[in-house]
Amino acid sequence: MSTSLLFSLCGIALFLLGLYVALTTSAMLRRILAINIMGNGVFMLFIASAYQRGEDGVLITDPVPHALVLTGIVVAVSATALALTLVCRLHELSSASHEGPE
């Protein structure tokens, strides 16, 4: 079993664990974290698949998955920031409505 295959399998495991939690939990923060873990599993799979042995046994890296993962990380971080901002706002609004208008 090669290293990249091991990393790919770990990526799949991370994706499925994240998917399970994202589907079963009702806590917003937990769901955001789970979706992040799903995304990280996909990134791991991508990066692992970028490493391949050439004909002469030298490791060559495919730049296209690397660039896609770089873009993906930025998008994942942005989406997480947006989700966390919205959750904070939701929390403020719901705690304000529980306390009642002052």
């Binding site: 660039a67 873009t71 942005s78 989406a79 947006l82 919205l86």
Partner: peptide, 22 residues
């Protein structure tokens, strides 16, 4: 793949504008 990078910046812009508004 410049198109991807442009959309990445657009996503960041969306986040900055939304967070700024909130």
């Amino acid at each position: 793949r410049a198109f991807d990078t442009m959309l990445e910046l657009a996503v960041l812009l969306l986040v900055a504008v939304t967070a700024g508004m909130l």
